[in-house]
Amino acid sequence: MPEELNLNELSRVVFLGLSQNEMFTLNKVAEEETRCFFSLRYTSVSHVGSGDQRHGISSCPPRRLCAVNIAVFWLLGISPPTKKNTLSYKLSRLSRSCVYFLLSCLFFHTVVVLYGAPLLESALETFSLAVLLSTLTTLRCLCMLGPNVQAWIRVFSRDGAMSVWDTSLQITTGCSVVGAWLGAFPIPLDWDRPWQVWPISCSLGATGGFLTGLLVAPIWIRWHRKQLTYKLK
């Protein structure tokens, strides 16, 4: 039975919860990430602090993003209610989530390479882009829907969204991927800018797309609140 939710309230939650927590960190993350890539190419100063510079750099932005994402979703408590509450069940879900996350990193890496990224040269940078993309898309799916591919496929269809969270997930995920896609556009241009170097523009595009998604999702939900009807689970 369709039911119109109290969207005003929910959208406020979306806006408050996501914007205040994530947008602030994300801004910093985007900035930091650019610096990460720049430092990789232009300076030898490691700002990560750890001894292994390259390793630290390749995972520094997504790592913080992961933490923020998980924390936000845990605090908001919008993950699907689990039927079983035993520790072993939770652990198995957690491990499956980790495996899924890793698989999605590999998947994104493959897709990006097939799109024309260099295969061997700067593979680490490519992989870090894949990790970033997984963080922006798969991790949110994992947090919201659990390690359940069927549900993921369901969410990304016209009638698949079952709550405002699903709708916002659709929008942010789409925006991140499209942002990364658009980020590839300036690469062939002969402007000789430092940010045109291979994965930087795509990472910036993905991050920018994600930010746009976060901004757009509440607005879109509010705008279409009359048309949005969700089925009860």
């Binding site: 496929i153 990304f156 269809s157 016209r158």
Partner: peptide
């Protein structure tokens, strides 16, 4: 395929 999935036709 993404469009087909969006229309709910892929599965």
């Amino acid at each position: 395929p993404l469009q087909l999935n969006w229309d709910g036709l892929l599965v």
